[in-house]
């Protein structure tokens, strides 16, 4: 199961890399969103997928599943949600003021 999820992580990273390396602003932003999903899945897999019971003492004798990666992912998801929302708004403002969403034209000139 872990290997399967890791393969999925690999696919997500590949997709995200392709999107980030493109020239269109919106694609790059979507790429970063996909990238963060890949990272979350990776953390989940690194902690070991569900192997035992709910980690509550007294409910069962164990072995227990590691709950820490889920807490980490929850935090990371909230952060990446906030950042993605911010980048989308920033991207929209850049498009409005610079009049383009193409990174070739957003490069900037040395004489500015």
């Amino acid at each position: 199961m872990e290997s399967l999820i890791l393969l999925l992580v690999g696919v997500l990273v590949a997709v995200a890399t392709y999107l980030i390396l493109s020239r269109q602003l919106l694609r790059v932003i979507l790429g970063t969103a996909v990238l963060s999903h890949a990272a979350h899945l990776l953390i989940l897999t690194m902690g070991g997928l569900k192997k035992g019971d709910v980690p509550l003492l007294g409910e069962s004798d164990g072995p227990y599943t590691d709950a820490l990666p889920q807490a980490l992912i929850l935090t990371a998801i909230v952060i990446s949600f906030a950042v993605t929302a911010f980048v989308l708004v920033l991207g929209y403002r850049v498009y409005k003021t610079n009049g383009t969403g193409n990174f070739d034209e957003l490069r900037g000139r040395p004489d500015e």
């Binding site: 963060s36 690194m46 820490l68 980048v87 920033l90 003021t97 957003l106 900037g108």
Partner: peptide, 28 residues
Amino acid sequence: VQLREALKYVLINVVASWIFLVALAFLY
């Protein structure tokens, strides 16, 4: 100009944070 550079700054840092998460996952 400011928005343009800000966008690049944000994107670089988003990718850096992603590497941070990956490193954390491997460390854990």
